[in-house]
Design a protein around this nucleic acid. Sequence first.
DNA 1: TGGTTTTTGTATCTTTTGTTACAATTCAGC
DNA 2: GCTGAATTGTAACAAAAGATACAAAAACCA
Lengths: 209, 209
Amino acid sequence: MKNFNSFYTALKIDEPELKKQIESFARLEQVEKNTCILEPNKYIKWLAIVLEGKVRVWQETEDREILLYYVQPTQTCILSLAATFSDFKSSIYAQTIEKTTLLKIPVRFISRWSAQYSSWHQFTTATFITSYQELLSRYSTLAFKKIKERLMDYLNDKSQTTHSKTILISHQALASEMGTTREVVSRTLKKLEQEKRLQLAFKKIELNR
Amino acid sequence: MKNFNSFYTALKIDEPELKKQIESFARLEQVEKNTCILEPNKYIKWLAIVLEGKVRVWQETEDREILLYYVQPTQTCILSLAATFSDFKSSIYAQTIEKTTLLKIPVRFISRWSAQYSSWHQFTTATFITSYQELLSRYSTLAFKKIKERLMDYLNDKSQTTHSKTILISHQALASEMGTTREVVSRTLKKLEQEKRLQLAFKKIELNR
DNA sequence: TGGTTTTTGTATCTTTTGTTACAATTCAGC
DNA sequence: GCTGAATTGTAACAAAAGATACAAAAACCA
């Protein structure tokens, strides 16, 4: 299967035995855009690996939310992964933000394969490491930087990953990424526009330079 | 050796071969209080596991610092661990805050053992998971709570782990844990005292209730 | 095209946090 | 006990972020 092979390549999975295991126990699933795939206190039965599409993972309180990370193709959700090793409940939300293809693996295999197949072990280890580093980076930013700088960082990041100076997003959505309110984002963006660092349009931000 | 056995027990290391490896390649080291053991851009040659004592790990900018975590007996520094799998430089500081006994293992063994010995694999995996969860918890707190609540959380935590309602710490040190300034801490503590939630004394905070 | 919904703009006010600047207190060592 | 260093207290002001309350603009769609 074409999907599987590119997945194997990306994850450097070369053990035939592991491939066989994956193909007999994992399940492919198409998920529509904006489908909730993880909620607080929901019991985790599968580890989902994103093959196509994108999943947004965040935390929220009554009146705020903040981005934790996006799960991109060939990646998996670190918190689901952690849950397969030691069961704990984390109060996070995950939702597809595009039409997404998931490879779902029953949790009972995850730690077993990790002990058995070196490429799987490397996949889980790499997931832990990069996820930790990403979260640490967010933590520092939150601790040390003001909202204006955090916004610019976010926008520059998006611009980099999408190879485009145009970012299509509403102020409310931005606020939910940054852990603040819409009004704060609008005000800050307006200041940045006055400083000629970007141009604002309806649900659209154009970066200068 | 007494130290080693309690360490093996705590980490559930039971493979004789692994014990042999540890005993031939690892090195015990006594480190005095307030010794720097990790600085930004310092090359990591050893993975240090704390057997006795305590290590503080933090991040700093020109004018601020913020706590990342403490490394307690039988634990290791997640960022050193991550560095042994994929070398990257993280800009963190680590320093003993008590006289500390370290078990130092040359980095070349870490991922090897992880693939080879299941108890070692479990140790590294557990380290990744608990470290991630701890950082996530700090991240949420930072994102959603105000300084007053964060301070109380910190003090209650300390009180719990030390089994004492008395916390010996200066306002400046507290500020460095919370990522803010001394004046903010002093003011907030004073408010908490007026609310009868604690009593202040010189380098000492007494929790009520 | 008109009406409805969503999004954005913005003024005003409040709260929180940060900064500056000094004074007062406490302790440690002599 | 005296002295210097470290710690704490605090007032006053500044800046950042949050909250409230509406208005205006743009998009959607019937």
